[in-house]
């Protein structure tokens, strides 16, 4: 059997994580939930050659290669959560579909902030979307990954990979505890097109609202699938043009002049960008 060291390491991490169990902390009026899956993630990172030296380059490479496959059992389970609640999901479909437009909140908030922090064209790549794989591919095709936009999208992509899961788990806890947003609305928002971010958010929410757990997971899974389907088109048709517009406005606000024309500017989606380089 291949990669036995990796699989045994994971088994040990799993057992330790689940034995610690989920912990909730009361902070003010709400509570923050820490789940075993977060410990497993952090301990996984700690096995790195630079820390505990349990996993070597070989294990790290094997783990990234197997990631898609190890996801499958969870995805099958999500399917079986959607099935029994399908009538409820269909009843909630207007909300499920329209909340997808909420993903535009990304550029509304992100672009002005990025420009105010001093980022230039990096802002477009970084803040036009949540920067998962399809968005990286899109920016790569349109601007090239070695462009400023490409650096931006890769930066957020890496951040999402490293801190995204835990960030989403804690953010869900905070939002459920301190905002008037309903857990089911937060469940729908969890599906951003990344299975691990969705799972962390859904996991935290269902730990806080056990009586709604199945419905929360079903809504999260359904919305995540929708995001996977529409996310790219949303970026091409709405988020990227909106980001370009917000970038010009924010740039003018900060520097008092129009931004310099980008070298490669092809909103129509022609392939000139790559030839010019």
């Amino acid at each position: 059997m291949k990669d036995i060291r990796l699989h045994v390491t994971v088994l040990v991490l799993c057992v330790i994580s689940e034995l610690i169990g989920s912990k909730s902390f009361a902070i003010g009026v709400g509570k923050i939930v820490l789940l075993p899956m977060f410990y497993a993630l952090i301990m996984g990172v700690l096995t790195a050659p630079r820390f505990l030296k349990i996993s070597g380059t070989k294990e790290i490479k094997a783990a990234s290669g197997l990631l898609g496959l190890t996801l499958m059992l969870l995805m099958a389970r999500y399917g079986t959560l959607v099935g029994p609640t399908l009538p409820k999901i269909i009843a909630a479909s207007p909300a499920l579909i329209l909340q997808e437009f909420g993903n535009l909140g990304t550029c509304l908030l992100g672009i002005p902030l990025a420009v105010l922090l001093g980022l230039k064209r990096e802002a477009i790549g970084a803040a036009h979307s949540i920067a998962r794989e399809p968005n990286v591919a899109l920016i790569g095709e349109r601007y090239g990954l070695d462009s400023a936009e490409g650096r931006g999208v890769m930066g957020v992509y890496i951040c999402g990979t490293v801190i995204g899961t835990i960030f989403f788990g804690l953010m869900a806890s905070f939002a459920a505890a301190y905002t008037p947003l309903h857990p089911l609305a937060l469940a729908m928002a969890s599906g951003v097109g990344s299975a691990s971010m969705m799972t962390a958010s859904v996991g935290s929410l269902s730990a806080m609202f056990p009586e709604l757990a199945d419905q929360i997971a079903a809504f999260g899974a359904a919305s995540n699938m929708l995001s996977g389907l529409d996310g790219l088109y949303m970026s091409i048709w709405l988020a990227l043009p909106a980001s370009e517009f917000l970038y010009r406005k924010a740039y003018k606000f900060k520097y008092g002049e129009e931004p310099p024309k980008p070298l490669i500017h092809s909103i129509a989606g022609d392939a000139k960008g790559d030839e010019q380089k």
Binding site: T9, F38, A40, L41, I60, L67
Partner: peptide
């Protein structure tokens, strides 16, 4: 999710 995130962590 636990095994999955352990792989992800590594």
């Amino acid at each position: 999710c636990v095994p999955l995130l352990a792989y992800a962590g590594i």
